[in-house]
Design a binder for these strands. Sequence first.
DNA 1: TTCATAGTTTGATCATGAACGAAGCATTGG
DNA 2: CCAATGCTTCGTTCATGATCAAACTATGAA
Lengths: 227, 227
Amino acid sequence: MNVGPNISIIAGLVGDPARARMLGALMAGKALTASELAAIAGVALPTASAHLAKLTDGGLLTSVKQGRHRYFTLSGADVADVLESLMSLAERTLGEPVKTGPRDPRLRAARICYDHLAGDMAVALFDSFQKRALIEESRAAMRLTESGEAFFRDFGLDMDAVMAARRPACRPCLDWSARRSHLAGGLGKAILDRFLSKTWATRDHGGRAVSFTPEGLRQYRLLTGSV
Amino acid sequence: MNVGPNISIIAGLVGDPARARMLGALMAGKALTASELAAIAGVALPTASAHLAKLTDGGLLTSVKQGRHRYFTLSGADVADVLESLMSLAERTLGEPVKTGPRDPRLRAARICYDHLAGDMAVALFDSFQKRALIEESRAAMRLTESGEAFFRDFGLDMDAVMAARRPACRPCLDWSARRSHLAGGLGKAILDRFLSKTWATRDHGGRAVSFTPEGLRQYRLLTGSV
DNA sequence: TTCATAGTTTGATCATGAACGAAGCATTGG
DNA sequence: CCAATGCTTCGTTCATGATCAAACTATGAA
C-alpha cells in the first residue's frame, strides 16, 4: 500500500508556511496575481514564483495569464475542502482554538469557503434547508427537492443554470469552525453569488470574512424562513 | 487571517514520506510499535523514534507504553478522515489513479478506515441502510432510526454499548476510492468489530485490505438486505 | 522606439531537518 | 545479578529546499 508518496507530496506542498498562507488567501475564492500572493505570503517575488510553480505542478492551483498578470486560483473546491479539514484537525490537535485575532468571531459567523458561504450562518442555513425539505440526503448524496428548486428560483437564483451545470447542485462541506456541514456545490455558489452581486454582503478587505448589510440580513432571514 | 501556520504544521508532519507511510499503516486501526513502524517506513529506529515524537507532539498520534514496547495509534478518526481526503485529492491532482499495486482492486472493494469499513462494499452498505431508513440524516447529522436500532440489535451488535457511548453512533465518512460516503462512528465500528471477532472477515497480513469468508459474505448480504 | 511593470530564471547562500551510529535508559527474562 | 530487547538521546553528516539579488523575458504604455 504505497499510499505514503501520494499524500506526502500534496501534504508537503501545504506544509510550507509561505505556501500555506497563499492557499489560505486563495480560499476566499478570488483569483490573485503572483505579486499579491507574494505580499500575502511575505516573501519576495522570485520566491513566490517558485512556490506557485510547485503548487501548480502539484495540481493544487490553476492559473490564467491576462496581459502581463497571472491570476492564480485553487484548482477546485476539493482543495478548499481539504484545507478546511486540515484547519479543523489543527484546531483539535494543536490545542489552540485557532490563532484568535480580533476579527476571528466574524470569521466564525460568516466567511467564504472558496465559492460558497461557511461559518455559523451557513450551517444554520443548511439546517434550515434540510428541516424544510428543500434539500435532502439520498443515497449518500445530497439532492435538491422539487419544492427546494421552486423556493430558490423564487428567491431569485438562476436555477436553470444550477441544474444544467455538470457539478452537483448540493454537496455538504464540513465547516471548519462549527464542525458541522454547510452547503457547497452549485447551489451554495449560487446563493453566495446572489448576495455578493446584490451587495447584500461584501468580503472584508479581500479576506475571507463576510459582512452583511441590513438588507442582506433581511434576505438571509428570508432564506432561513425565520420571518 | 493567520490560518497558514496552523495547517502548515499539520501538513508538514504528513509531508514527510517516512511519516506518511507510518500514518498510512496506522490507518488500518491497529496499534503498532515503534520498531514495526520503523520497518514500515523503511528507516532506522532512531529516525523513526524522532518522527514518532514529532507526530505525537503534533497531536496526530497517541501512544501507550506496555512493558518495553510502545504502541502508537492515530489520535482519532478525524486524523484518518483527513488522510483519506488527502488521498482523494492526490488522486485527482496528481493524475495517476493511485499507485496501483496488484492488490489495489481488493483495497477498493473493502478496506479498513481506522475503525470501520471503507470501500465499495461499505458504500453499498451505507446506501442500503439509508434506503431502508435504518439511518437518516437529520439537521446535518446522521441519526440511527428506531427500526435501525432494532435491526442492528437483531444482527447481533451490542447496541446498548453503541448508544451509551459518548461518540456519535452514525457519522458519514468520505470514501477515498468511491468518493461517496460510508458509515463511520460507533455503529460503523461495531459492524467491523462484529465481522472481525466472528472471523467473518480478516485483515490481509496487517494491511488495510479486508477479506471475507463465504460466511462473511453471507452475513454481509444479510446486512445489505439483498437476501 | 523607449520606459515601466509583471513575472521567470539563474545562481549563490544558508538554515532546516532527515538520516544513522554509538551510547544511554528502561524493562523483562533468566 | 547479568544479559537481551525496545526505545530514546546525542552528535555528526549530509541533502534538500527556501530565500533573494541580479539578470532576463514579455507585455503594455508613452
